[in-house]
């Protein structure tokens, strides 16, 4: 787990565009727990206008028996969910899973250099097609860069 996402650890912050047109500041803090058995992810979203908290989140990235990433997560807006890895390009972590109310949440994350990109899409579960917009955030690392090969 930790080998694959070691360079993702740390605190990241940047601007997010929400699906309803609002924008805000998003922060991700990723930390290793139990010697790299899992990664804890704390998220916060605040209004860029008045600094008001918009949403708080918490999650864990870990591996299932087949080596696929499982992301059990909480969001104060969406509730609890278990997202599972879905195929994507190398270097991109895509996870997807059901929310209450028959909705599906898709999240794609990647780190390139000092940029952490997160995009999410909440869609209706029965329909194969749903053109609701995605949220999109690009964050920069706060603090030191993790070396690729220490």
């Amino acid at each position: 787990m930790i080998r694959r996402f070691r360079t993702w650890l740390g605190t990241w912050r940047g601007r997010i565009e929400f699906t309803d047109g609002r924008s805000g500041i998003m922060q991700f803090k990723l930390s290793s727990i139990f010697s790299g058995e899992a990664i804890q992810v704390e998220t916060s979203f605040i209004s860029s206008e008045d600094g008001r908290p918009l949403n708080r989140g918490w999650g864990y990235l870990s591996l299932d028996a087949s080596g696929q990433v499982v992301n059990n997560m909480y969001s104060s807006e969406l509730g609890f969910a278990v997202l599972k890895e879905s195929p994507d390009d190398p270097g991109v972590l895509s996870v997807s899973g059901g929310l209450s109310g028959n909705e599906i949440l898709d999240v794609a994350m990647s780190v390139v250099g000092d940029e952490f990109t997160v995009s999410s899409h909440r869609r209706e579960g029965y329909s194969g097609h749903d053109d609701r917009p995605r949220t999109y955030a690009v964050m920069k690392r706060i603090g030191l860069t993790m070396p690729e090969n220490p």
Binding site: A38, Y60, S76
Partner: peptide, 30 residues
């Protein structure tokens, strides 16, 4: 370490409290 669990207790939009966690024995938990 026989067993380690890290978790957070939080309120679902339904009003119910749940614990989201990771266990070194059981893996991801809700």
């Amino acid at each position: 370490l026989f067993h380690g669990v890290h978790s957070v207790l939080a309120r679902a939009p339904s009003g119910m409290l749940r614990a989201l966690g990771f266990s070194t024995i059981h893996g991801p938990l809700i």
